[in-house]
Design a binder for these strands. Structure first.
Lengths: 141, 141
DNA sequence: TATTGTTATACTCTATAACTATA
DNA sequence: TATAGTTATAGAGTATAACAATA
């Protein structure tokens, strides 16, 4: 890896961290946390999953996922049911209103980012668009 | 903005948040926090600045910057001096060992990210490299 | 009055360690 | 013994509100 690459890595890291902090702080108080939204999105898309599966997917520890699920359950967005085969496990399922909440929360949460994207040039937007799948892959490695 | 753009924005946001969480949790316990490292880097590069200037630059609130500076001062990495012109303000200056700490901490902090970049193809790396300046700009808008 | 920095306080998110129930 | 989920606890990082000193 060249010196220029190392510098780029440092800038990438700092930018992701700063941008992440701003995205976290920008969301409305009543909206879902990033992890809550991410979990609910997966559940809406894929159906029931266990807490352990969700924790592995989100790269968080199991106790953190317990809290995330508890928050979603309080709002009536997920249901916890006995696992059909293994009584140690449970299944978490998105409830009927979850799909709409996902759509709405995502819209609100993206508002700040979408607004700031307006300030970018076409070339910058194109570069960003090309990098989005790479960032997505990097985030789940 | 097209529907595809909205979806891309959602993925970008989720990816930045998830990647940011992993980058935060990945650093060693004794290393500097992201904001501490960022502040120290600026001070090493630009010389003395006031807490207010640093807070605006990092997009954090002044009390948060006070804490960041206190942490750096405890480690002997910055010095707080009276401001030469305005006695309400102070100047924050990087000390002699700061430059080396910045280089070392950055190297450690980037290790996880650099290691994971190895898994990407040349095309993905090129896309990422092109997007780094855009992400940097977005982070400081 | 307005501005700068600080102190006091609280909140969100995540982590580790220890516990319970089941396999 | 090993695994899944939970509870208890702690820590990092940031925010808002209130305060002191200075402009």
């Amino acid at each position: 890896m060249s010196e220029a690459d190392r510098a780029a890595v440092a800038v990438l890291r700092a930018s992701v961290l700063k941008l992440g902090r701003r995205l976290r702080n920008q969301r409305a108080d009543e909206s879902l946390s990033p992890t809550q939204l991410s979990v609910l999105t997966i559940l809406v898309a894929r159906g029931a999953m266990t807490p352990g599966e969700l924790a592995r997917h989100e790269k968080v520890q199991p106790p953190s996922m317990t809290r995330v699920i508890a928050g979603l359950e309080e709002r009536g967005l997920v249901r916890r049911d006995p696992h059909p085969e293994d009584r140690r496990q449970i299944t978490v399922t998105a409830t009927e209103p979850a799909a709409e909440v996902v759509a709405e929360s995502r819209k609100l949460g993206n508002a700040w980012l979408a607004a700031h994207l307006e300030a970018l040039s076409d070339e910058e937007l194109a570069a960003l668009r090309a990098a989005v799948p790479v960032l997505e892959r990097l985030a789940q490695l």
